[in-house]
């Protein structure tokens, strides 16, 4: 008695890592949700306009607002310095803005008015400064747009997460309800079985159909345990496993007192025993609470009986 289909991957981890294939880490799994947000492979790509916008969009709200304010202040200083050093600065009314503190204030005020694209027109740029003012207008609008979209999307992200969670919970609820239905159906069939010596053909069909539902839900639970992307709450998982165990036990009881089996029924039984066989406390990719492990081991025990 030994395993017949064992393969050896000779290269092992060393070869795997060298080839650049994906590697999974346990901490990484735990922070999967966070990790997906942090992976931003921008460094390798050529930085184009769209990418610049991507980078901006990935900044946090605080960073964006800080950057926006920083740009405005820097531009204000540039307007003021241009007036001090080169003589062509800003003009308020009919007089040029003087290179003093009041002038600095006016320059920063002009910078804000430009960046917000208000453009009162009480202070106007002169000469080459006009190009700078237009550039500031464009940059200010783009960044301000990012700030606004960030505010809007923050709520949206919350909503998407909420939707994901509710869908997942709905799915769990459906599995639980279906398992309950299968259990009550099996109970009824068992009753009929006791009253008659052999099951009438329509009841046999009913047994087949509820078994098919059971197979489907067993697959879902198997998937839930082995694919570690979504993690149900422990209570929910425990109730699912408990229901699954009850159904499996009821099914085995019924089959023991019943000799007729159709081809479809047998095929489903094989799937059930194979899947349930792989549910055990120690063989999951993640470790679970002892109570959950007990249920899993019980499921495996029952699967062995079924086989």
């Amino acid at each position: 008695m030994s395993y017949t289909n064992v393969y050896h991957y000779v290269g092992g981890m060393t070869d795997w890592v060298e080839s650049g294939a994906p590697v999974e880490r346990v901490e990484a799994l735990l922070q999967a949700a966070q990790a997906t947000r942090h992976i931003q492979p921008v460094s390798a790509r050529r930085v184009s306009w769209a990418n610049w916008l991507d980078i901006l969009a990935n900044w946090s709200l605080k960073q964006l607002v800080g950057f926006w304010l920083g740009i405005i202040i820097v531009f204000g200083f540039v307007y003021w310095a241009a007036g001090v050093g080169m003589g062509w600065g800003l003009q308020a009314g009919n007089t040029t803005v003087k290179p003093d503190f009041v002038g600095l204030g006016t320059a920063i005020y002009f910078s804000f008015v430009t960046a917000l694209s208000i453009g009162y027109g009480d202070v106007i740029p002169l000469g080459p400064l006009r190009i700078l003012a237009v550039a500031e207008g464009i940059a200010g609008l783009l960044i301000f747009g990012c700030v606004i979209s960030k505010l809007v999307s923050r709520r949206q992200e919350e909503l998407v997460e909420e939707i994901h969670r509710t869908t997942f919970e709905d799915r769990l609820d459906r599995v639980r309800t279906n398992l309950h239905l299968v259990l009550s159906d099996l109970g009824t069939i068992d009753q009929i079985n006791r009253e008659h010596s052999a099951l009438p053909s329509h009841v046999l069909k009913r047994l087949e159909s509820s078994e098919r539902v059971f197979t489907g839900e067993l697959k879902t639970i198997h998937d839930l345990l082995y694919r570690t992307r979504l993690l149900p709450e422990e209570d929910a998982l425990e109730s699912l496993l408990a229901n699954l165990t009850l159904c499996l036990a009821a099914l085995i009881d019924l089959l023991n007192s019943q000799t007729q089996r159709s081809v479809g029924l047998n095929a489903d039984l094989k799937t059930i025993s194979n899947l349930a066989n792989e549910i055990c406390g120690e063989c999951m990719p993640r470790s679970y609470a002892p109570a959950l492990k007990q249920w899993m081991d019980q499921i495996q025990e029952l699967a062995k009986k079924l086989a």
Partner: peptide, 21 residues
């Protein structure tokens, strides 16, 4: 101790690997 529990079906396709060659 655990192989039989994890893979009760002997015909299961299994690939094993360790650190390297």
């Amino acid at each position: 101790t655990k192989a039989r529990q994890i893979f009760p079906v002997l015909s299961r396709e299994i690939s094993v690997y360790c650190m390297g060659p």
